[in-house]
Design a protein around this nucleic acid. Structure first.
Length: 646
RNA sequence: GCCUGCAUAGCUCAGUAGGUAGAGCAACUGACUUGUAAUCAGUAGGUCGUUGGUUCGAUUCCGACUGCAGGCUCCA
């Protein structure tokens, strides 16, 4: 009996029933067979060794594609589990998926793995690859599979199988003496993984991601189609780490952190200049967009936090103190204070939407393990804003906000934004009807702008759904920056009302929003985005005037004064050092413009301009430089040279 | 908070199989007045994160604490 196989290019071929992906690939070319790792059969990923019994639309998955890499990585996880069980009998396997750039596997074992163990495991993995064990798919009965794993002492596996949906086919994959529950697909044999993998780190991870459960030991690895790709990846990682904001913060003396104030930033002059530039920019933009800036207290009586509900939900994360028998908390967020401002005086529907903004300093006692450089701190400033509006105004407010956020991110040079919509959690306030409408309002706002977003069901706040806007750091970690949250709870709890058209008192909807998120986190991301080479409008030091001879000192000081009068952050370097030394130092500091001043310049009233990222010097009258540079700053231009990001 | 690791001069890092530590850069002093990514010479700088224990002796071995890093959980 023959079947019809349809290829990706539309070609149809008659093949004997029971043909495998491997045979199909072989029939096309030996190169394809060599690079094949799996096959798509009617939209489903299959093993290459699985027999195709009916007409099918197929596509061979090769090792250098995203899908192929996922198969390789998944296999790497299995091979690692096999290696671990060979080396450390009695270790239970749990789950081991492919992830971005690699894979991991979670193990349950009394004794802790050490970094030396990783080397041993990796060496054993290479042996298993060399053994080239056939990987075979087996379909099992659920009960048999559960009993089988229980008898092996693999309780976690048995639990996973027991929890699988009833209609799911239970497939086990066998390679050598190792057998694991898996949906597949897998490589025909272990040898096909080759040598483009490496174990990278050890970590703890909770069973099923729940901190109430047992903690397992997770081993991470990275895997690529070949060794060259692996090396390129490791190199990329190494390069990316040079952009780390903690490293650059130290190199450029932007800020520091120290033991006595964990999770709080000491901003140095240069870092603070950057901070203030960003804040001033945001203040101006917010004013343009109809926000009114306010400032609310740091220390607020605990009763307000009880009323707002934060004491309940946030309790342990709040810093509180008692003074004169009164209990206070340092504010962990600004919202309740903003409601207090709204509540002053009687508000009319004519006042809505009312937009209040604050660079609000917040303190949260984050768990020690959660702290990370200046990205996750205990003391931070939010570019917080709250809009009080009617339900009808939500849609347009959200839509305008997204435009605002895009304008800001674009000015800062961020192109990749990750959008997530978090919807109703199990524990929540407000009727389903209101949730339906507001989730739809947020989704519509995203869709109407043609944005690609992920749904995070159940991840919303108890008081309303939210959109999260995230950016990536230098090694690809995702950090939430912007947010737009709806709140159906707090205005009512805190007694916010307005007089409606018909004279009745109504409770406004409250929208919590931030664009940068926190100044600290955003600046951290910004530093990594530019690897410390900030564009002229942001650079803490924009121009450095460096002298070649002492005779030029007076003129250099005049130049710096003129630059400052023109609104630039300009400094002089009058040290008795060679110009090469000064240029090197200021280039390493990634200052956008170095003006070298020697006898000639002093006599002619010119400046020799050397821009960051270029080795060329251009001599021009000071006025001309000021004009050029003003334009660049005005337009928030980003460096164009490739070297700028080096 | 949990798991694994780490903590040596201002910075980047060596080092001691247990006998109180070293380099480069930076700093300071002097000379050099210099034309676009490091001028030369000299000086000074560390209770080896804190704290217990083992030991004749601990920066080194063991424990606790603090902080940091990478994950997990949580989150701007």
């Amino acid at each position: 009996m023959s079947i019809q196989i349809t290829f990706p290019d539309g070609a149809v071929k008659d093949c004997p029933a029971g043909i495998t992906g491997l045979e199909i690939a072989d029939g096309i070319s030996s190169g394809l067979r060599r690079n094949a790792v799996a096959i798509t059969v009617n939209g489903e990923q299959w093993d290459l060794t699985r027999a195709i019994e009916g007409d099918a639309q197929i596509a061979i998955i090769t090792r250098d594609t995203d899908e192929g890499l996922e198969v390789l990585r998944h296999d790497a996880a299995h091979i690692m589990a096999e290696a671990v069980q060979e080396l450390y009998p009695g270790t239970q396997v749990t789950i081991g998926p492919a992830i971005e750039d690699g894979f991991y596997y979670d193990f349950a074992r009394e004794e802790a793995f050490t970094p030396e163990d990783l080397e041993k495991i990796e060496a054993r993995m290479r042996e298993i690859v060399k053994r080239n064990e056939a990987i075979e798919r087996e379909v099992w009965q659920r009960d048999e599979a559960i009993t089988f794993f229980k008898n092996m002492g693999e309780d976690y596996k048995a639990e996973i199988i027991a929890d699988l949906p009833a209609e799911e086919t239970i497939t086990l994959y066998r390679q050598g003496d190792f057998i694991d529950l898996c949906r597949g697909p897998h490589l025909p044999s272990t040898g096909i993984l080759r040598d483009g993998f490496k174990l990278t780190k050890l970590a703890g991870a909770y069973w099923r991601g729940d901190s109430n459960n047992a903690q397992l030991q997770r081993i991470y690895g990275t895997a690529w189609s070949d060794k060259k790709q692996l090396k390129a990846y490791l190199k990329r990682l190494e390069e990316a780490e040079k952009r780390d904001h903690r490293r650059i913060g130290k190199q450029q003396s932007l800020f520091h952190l120290q033991d006595e104030a964990p999770g709080s930033v000491f901003w140095h002059p240069k870092g603070w200049a950057l901070y203030q530039t960003v804040q001033a920019y945001m203040a101006e933009k917010q004013y343009e967009r109809g926000y009114q800036e306010i400032k609310t207290p740091q220390l607020v009586d605990f009763s307000l936090w009880e009323k707002s509900g934060h004491a309940d939900k946030f309790g342990d994360d709040m810093f509180s103190l008692t003074s004169d028998d009164r209990q206070y908390a340092i504010k962990p967020m600004n919202c309740p204070c903003h409601v207090q401002v709204f509540n002053q005086g009687l508000k009319s529907y004519r006042d809505l939407p009312l937009r209040l903004a604050e660079f609000g300093s917040c303190h949260r006692n984050e768990m020690s393990g959660a702290l990370h450089g200046i990205m996750r701190v205990r003391s931070f400033v939010q570019d917080d804003g709250h809009t009080f509006c009617t339900e009808e105004q939500i849609q347009s407010e959200v839509s305008e906000f997204i435009d605002f956020l895009h304008e800001v991110y674009q000015d800062f040079g961020f192109e990749e934004i990750i959008y997530k919509l978090s919807t109703r959690p199990e524990k929540r306030v407000g009727s389903d009807d209101v949730w339906d409408r507001s989730e739809k309002a947020l989704a519509d706002a995203l869709d109407s702008k043609g944005l690609d977003w992920d749904l995070q069901p159940g991840e919303g706040a108890f008081y309303g759904p939210k959109i999260e806007f995230s950016l990536r750091d230098c090694i690809g970690r995702v950090w939430q920056c912007g947010t737009m949250q709806m709140d159906f709870s707090m205005p009512e709890r805190l007694g916010a009302e307005y007089v409606a058209e018909d004279g009745s008192k109504q409770v406004p909807v409250m929208l919590h929003r931030a664009i940068l998120g926190s100044m600290e986190r955003f600046l951290g991301i910004l530093i990594e985005q530019y690897a410390g080479a900030l564009p002229a409008w942001l650079a803490p030091q924009q121009v450095m005037v460096a002298t070649i001879v002492t005779e030029a000192n007076d003129y250099a000081s005049d130049v710096a004064k003129a630059l400052r009068n023109a609104g630039f952050r300009a400094e002089t370097d009058l040290r008795n050092e060679k110009i090469g030394y000064k240029v090197r130092e200021h280039s390493l500091q990634k200052i956008p413009a170095i003006l070298c001043i020697g006898k000639r310049e002093a006599e002619e009233g010119t400046v020799a301009v050397r821009r960051f990222g270029s080795k060329a010097q251009t001599v021009m009258p000071l006025e001309e430089f000021i004009e050029h540079f003003s334009n660049e700053v005005e337009q928030k231009q980003v460096f164009e040279t490739a070297e700028a990001s080096a």
